[in-house]
Design a protein around this nucleic acid. Sequence first.
DNA 1: TAGATTGTTAATCGATTAACAATC
DNA 2: TAGATTGTTAATCGATTAACAATC
Lengths: 215, 215
Amino acid sequence: MMQIPTLPPAVVPRLTKYLALIQQLSSEGVQWVSSQDLADALGLTSSTVRQDLSHVDYSGISKRGYETTGLEKVLAGILGADREWKTVVIGAGNLGMALARHEEFLRHGFTMCGVFDSDEKKIGRKVGRLTVRGMRDLPAFVGSEMVQVGVLAVPASAAQSCADLLIASGIKGLLNLSLAHLIAPRTVAVMDSRMIASLIELTHAITLRQNPSSP
Amino acid sequence: MMQIPTLPPAVVPRLTKYLALIQQLSSEGVQWVSSQDLADALGLTSSTVRQDLSHVDYSGISKRGYETTGLEKVLAGILGADREWKTVVIGAGNLGMALARHEEFLRHGFTMCGVFDSDEKKIGRKVGRLTVRGMRDLPAFVGSEMVQVGVLAVPASAAQSCADLLIASGIKGLLNLSLAHLIAPRTVAVMDSRMIASLIELTHAITLRQNPSSP
DNA sequence: TAGATTGTTAATCGATTAACAATC
DNA sequence: TAGATTGTTAATCGATTAACAATC
């Protein structure tokens, strides 16, 4: 099996940016990309790009840069973006239903195989080709379908208890969309993508820019 | 007007976490919280919490900690979470429609006042109490309604051109939900909340945990 | 009072940038 | 060849942690 190098934490989010950009470039027929090209497109320095890519087992070529298709393959392998990931959504509210139907997930290898909600009234509703299931069915489903990823689209007040149930069911990773901070054992990976928190950071940045005291 | 101190970049995301937690605690009637309490709940060290809060014009009290209601007010002020922010969503797909109906936004001060799409077929559709408008109406709407925040729920391929239109219309900040990296002038704040990118970081973390080479 | 907790300084750690020899 | 670009080392910068006097 391929060796996955341990990467400095700050590098991983940038690798996902390189991958997204290179996928776009290679689909447009671009064959070579330099560290300066990547830096310009992503608002970084070429030095940072080269440092980051030095952690990756793929060499560029002087005077030409990196071959897009080769680098794309290596980055996808390191990040797990070359595999299928069975995914469930918890929460059949506006957001959860939208995510269950979101084609972008499938396009990036996340196979949506279940939507769960604790509200009895929502159980049985159709979401595309799926049907909303009750939370009581979650443990058996995760186990038998070997679901690896759970997306939490529930209110902050319910997030930790839903996470606990997913963890007890044997899930491997959680995407937390709620404002709550989740506690999980080290064996389970957790990533946050919290729109409300990002919006609040955004309003802070707007306020700073409107305030003449900042440089 | 209140003085907004310039904060180290790494501190701001944590302030949003402190605020979310303290809002919950104060709504539960908790009156005092120590740096150790906050650290335990959020997976930090008490030292980090005290360093962060030292940037904030609010003093704790030895032996008791910080008063929740007071700290909540100060953090909300610094982050802009004590104001109303007029917000539009660009993109009336699954995700955009769900966000336009999402009550969580309103509860955090983001007043949803418009949904826009370039697809003629979607114009006129109802989204809660709103109606989908065409992109051609965006500049006049942002100007006359004094919209400050734009949420981009469009495919990566359309993200930059939509951002350019919002910026030309005079928007103050953008929340980018697409996988694309956005280029914007320094006068416009941009924050990313990219679920697909977070999911890919998650699959990397899962892969690492399953690989015995890591510590 | 005794003890817990803050605020702050200094030390450590990690991330970014600059610089340049190697190389295609 | 001459020149552009990599890979890597060293320097700088910023963030985190440890430690402890001040204080309630």
